[in-house]
Amino acid sequence: MLMVVMCCGAAHSDTPVWKSISDDGIHDPDNPAISLLQEPVTALSILPFDTAGNQVLWVRALQEGYIDPRTNIYPDTNIKVLDLDIIMPRTGSAKYVRFPHRAHTEWLDCSNCHDAIFKAKAGATPVTMLKILSGEYCGRCHGAVAFPLTECDRCHSVSSATQPGVVKGQ
């Protein structure tokens, strides 16, 4: 029980706390260059606050102009953003999932997911929560770098009365 409480405590906090690099358990405090590295608090405390992950709402930070990360290194790379949502209905008793392409393609390229992880056709990929929890499908990023899998409602966000399939972006 204690462990469960501690796990949740590590994933969620109401006030942002970023560990210093010299005290985060992985950086070598004897490294002479450590003082040159940027501290997470310096960079992240000025971004929209989240309760999980890096404690940053990364999608909002990008969309509201807090950050403007480069889209490409090569000048001729084609940058595509797709504004279509997918309603995913195979959720058992949980709410349906609304997957927004726009928030994802602002960060990622189509080829990062299609077709190796997801087929480019709604309903064609056998996504299950167990697979996601094992690091497959959405779990490639969610639980590793994008917001963690403790945040059920962010994906399971629409009523199960919603028509499944492809809909216009919000």
């Binding site: 890096n54 990364w58 990360p69 480069r70 960060w107 990622l108 990062n112």
Partner: peptide, 19 residues
Amino acid sequence: IFPHWFHRIRFRCKVCHNE
């Protein structure tokens, strides 16, 4: 140590994971 947070402020995922 590769910090994702540091890099994603400056680059979108697609730069490293695609290009």
